[in-house]
């Protein structure tokens, strides 16, 4: 397909899509109106379980099974990336040297921001049921905080502070914990992912039953996932190098070249 034909097909597709979307939007309830049937049902369910943060209640209580699937998607993607970014044929891992100059102001900022970010992450994660935030957000902030060390120019320090094997296990443990909490709901309550713990008082730190526990499980998975992902990409960029072919006269046979020739 030439570029010209592709652009014509694209233009036709965009016009058709835009027209169908315009037709769909004119048939929808008025924008910003007060007709939100799902909202009303979800708010009632949130109140029934004394959870202050309605979004957390929906994610971890009302549709916990969906969130389990979502967590599994993340888990599988990380496994896929880790499998794709191994050192492959004719590649080797080299030691990353501590070359390069880092501004002292950058260093200072990292020393100042690193503990602050970790505390913020734990705060966001722990209060997921009562304030905006939760496991996903807290996990991302925590992993970002740990990678501030890399911004400070210290790949070796990052590697010391980030024992990758722990995070591999932490990721799996988070998924297992999430599933175990769901099965506990089935064993003690009425259904899979049922909220079986007494919910307490709306707005309290210890309230809303299983939601904070789910938040912790998701936080573990998300933090470990982002760390494993970024570790794979950093490793690829910094440590893995293609081996030089020692004897240029003899072309080594490789599976790839055979594959592309057929």
């Amino acid at each position: 397909m030439t570029r010209r034909i592709r652009l014509i097909v694209l233009g036709l597709g965009i016009v058709a899509f835009a027209v169908s979307m315009a037709l769909a939007f004119t048939g929808m309830p008025q924008f910003g109106g007060d007709l939100h049937a799902y909202r009303d049902a979800a708010v009632a369910a949130t109140y029934a379980h004394d959870t202050a943060n309605a979004v957390s209640s929906i994610n971890f209580d009302q549709r916990g099974f969906d969130t389990f699937g979502e967590e599994t998607i993340l888990f599988c993607a990380v496994i896929g990336v880790a499998a794709l970014l191994r050192p492959v044929y004719r590649e080797r891992r080299r030691e990353v040297s501590e070359a390069g100059h880092v501004l002292e102001s950058t260093n200072l900022l990292v020393y100042f921001l690193f503990p602050l970010t970790v505390v913020l992450a734990v705060n966001v994660l722990a209060h997921g049921a009562v304030t905006p935030g939760g496991g996903f957000q807290g996990g991302v902030i925590l992993s970002t905080g740990i990678h501030l060390l890399y911004v400070g120019g210290r790949y070796s320090l990052l590697r010391k502070l980030r024992p990758l094997a722990w995070f591999h296990q932490g990721e799996a443990l988070g998924v297992v914990l999430f599933g175990a909490l769901g099965i506990t709901g089935a064993a003690l309550g009425s259904a899979l992912f049922a909220n079986v713990i007494p919910q307490g008082q709306l707005g309290d730190f210890i309230s809303s039953g299983t939601v904070p526990l789910f938040n912790i499980a998701v936080g573990m998975t998300v933090c470990s996932s982002v760390i494993v992902l970024l570790a794979s990409f950093l490793d690829q960029a910094l440590a893995i190098r293609a081996e030089r072919v020692s004897d240029p006269g003899r072309t080594p046979r490789s599976g790839y070249e055979e594959g592309s020739a057929s």
């Binding site: 909202r39 979800a42 998607i73 993340l74 993607a77 990380v78 992902l229």
Partner: peptide, 24 residues
């Protein structure tokens, strides 16, 4: 509506997973 906000959160996580997989 908190339902669509929860869906957006799911959407963002899936987007991050897809992006990382594709970049690899």
């Amino acid at each position: 509506d908190p339902v669509v906000q929860a869906l957006t959160l799911t959407d963002i996580v899936v987007s991050a997973a897809v992006t990382s997989m594709l970049l690899a």
